[in-house]
Every structure is written in structure tokens, then in C-alpha cells.
Simulated scan of single mutants.
Amino acid sequence: MKNKEDLDNQASRYVGRLEEYLESLDSLSDFNDRGYDSIIKDIEYIESQLKEEFNVDSKIRTAETYINKQMNKIGEKFDFEEDYKPINLKFSLLNFDLYYKTDDDEKVYLRSMGSGANWLYSHLSLFLALHRYFCKIGDKSVIPPILFIDQPTQVYFPANIEDNSNKFDAKELVKKRGKPENLDADMKSVKNIFEQLVQFCTDTKDLTGIEPQIIITDHADGLTLDNVTFDDLVVARWRNRGFIHPLPDEGYNVVEDNVVDEEQAVDGVKAEQLNLLDPPN
């Protein structure tokens, strides 16, 4: 841009475009002012109906109390920093605020909670508590208890660290990260994440009769867990293959081919490949 024309000319042109845009907003202000009072009245009327006829406030408080209680119960088992123990997280169903409440009733929001680990565990605690509530209310919930989590171990093995090896090597990754002395503590926390997620599903089924499903994509692998065999949790490994595997042969025309094999499914893809609960080796 600098080579194209004088910078002063460029600045003048953009200032002109900005002024034109602001003038267009002014032309809408009269319309907005006329409709504003009417909209506010509509909102107030709807809110009053919700409170009087459906007892929404009471239901929200009941749900919020349950979610906050479960969130802190779950959070106690994660590796929060010592400054945030004991866990006292709060979540508002009115504005979706999530914060830590101190003994002095001060609200500490996530942006001020320090390390990425605190962020991760705050979100995990909240999401799990929400899904436990969905299971608790059963058929009344319109949200299925299915939680997808992408790379929760990024806190300990950041995505910007290259990992092209055939197997997960935690020792090599922390070395690349420049903090090999943290290996034992990091691996302990990583293992605890998976163990608590498994335990959450079991406990929730015991409490509610419904077992939630948690789907995780991560490069952590081969972990030795206390309460479950890690390989039993793994649906598929993609280190040496793509998500779609095997790929169809080049030039394969699914429209012209007649699928007659009973093991074949739609568009020439084998049936067992469509079943994500029982994927091919």
C-alpha cells in the first residue's frame, strides 16, 4: 500500500469512508428512537408473564443452585492452583457469568484466574455440571448429554509444539516445551483429567440413571490409568492415517457401481466404517 500511493491520501480516503458510514447510522437514529420505547415495554410485559405464570425465577434459582453445587463437587477433583482451593466457582444462568468467589465475596473472573490449567478446569467443571443437570431432569431436557472436548491436554502439551512421531512421547514433548522438570507433575494432571471424566460418567449414571457420553480428540495416548484401561477408551487412532480411512481408490465411481455385497453400505462405503462406536482396525 505504501508503494501504491501517498500515505496521506490513503488516510484521507479511509476517513471519508468512515464519515460516510457514521452518517448512515445517523439516518437510522430517528427510527431506532421511535421503536425503542415500544420494544422495552414488550420485553417488560413478556418478563412479567414468565415470572407470574411460569414461575421462571424460582426454577432458574433451583437449577443454578444444583449446577453450582455439582460444579464445585466435580472441581474439587481437578488440579486447580492452590490459590483457588477450596473450589468456590459460581455460574449464573441469567447472564452466563462464570467466576471464582473469594471469602471476601469478591468475584474473580476467568480472565484474572492466572494459568491455563485454571481455565481448563473451570470449564470442565462447568460443562460436566451442566450435563449432570441435563441427566437429572431426564426427558425434560432438550439437550442430549453428549460432550465433545478437543485436546484438553493442550495446557500441558501445547498445540504449537510439533508432534509428528508415531507414538505419543510425553518426555519428548515437555523437552520441546522447555520444561522437562515438569514431566511428572504434568503427566499426573493429564492422567487425572481422563480418570475424572470416566468417573463422572459412572457417578452420573448412578445418580440419575442416565450415562452421559464424552467424546475426546487428543494426542495424549498410552496412559496408565487407575480406574480404567486406557485402550478400552480409544475408538480410533489417527496418527498414521486420515480421518476417512481407507480412502476409496482413485477413479472409483460410486454412482455407476452396483452395490451388491451385503457388507457394503451407501455410496460404496463399507457398513462397518460408518459405525463410529465400533470402528475398523
Rank of each mutant, 00 (worst) to 15 (best):
K205H: 05
I244Q: 03
P212R: 04
N192Y: 00
K59V: 02
I149M: 06
L98I: 05
G222F: 01
T217K: 00
V228P: 06
L223W: 03
G16A: 06
F78V: 13
N118R: 01
M187T: 07
L276W: 09
Y133G: 05
Q154P: 03
V255E: 12
Q151K: 08
L225R: 00
A185G: 06
S112C: 13
A170P: 04
P86T: 09
L233Y: 04
D83N: 14
S24H: 02
K136R: 13
A11D: 08
E263Q: 11
H245C: 07
D249P: 14
W238T: 11
E172Q: 07
Q154F: 05
V228S: 09
F127M: 08
G178T: 04
G268K: 00
E82D: 15
E172W: 03
V235F: 12
I244D: 02
V269C: 00
T229S: 13
C201A: 15
F200W: 06
S92F: 02
L124A: 02
L277G: 06
E162A: 13
Y100D: 04
P279G: 09
I137M: 00
L94A: 12
D150T: 10
I74T: 07
A271S: 12
D150E: 13
D33S: 12
K107A: 13
S48A: 15
F157E: 03
N118S: 01
G116Q: 01
G35W: 06
V198G: 05
I146A: 09
D30I: 11
D206H: 12
E23Q: 14
H131D: 10
L277V: 08
E52D: 15
K167E: 14
D232M: 03
D37M: 08
Y21V: 10
L274M: 14
D267K: 00
Y156K: 04
S141W: 00
M71P: 00
S122H: 01
A265E: 00
N68W: 00
D8F: 12
S125N: 01
R239V: 08
E272A: 11
E23F: 12
D221S: 02
L50G: 14
A220M: 07
V142G: 03
T217Y: 01
H123C: 08
K69C: 04
F200A: 04
I87G: 03
K51S: 15
V228R: 11
E262P: 15
P280V: 13
D37S: 12
G178V: 05
E250M: 10
L197N: 10
A220R: 00
E106A: 13
E5T: 14
V108S: 06
K107Q: 15
K77Q: 15
K179D: 05
Y121F: 15
K69P: 01
C135Y: 02
K59F: 03
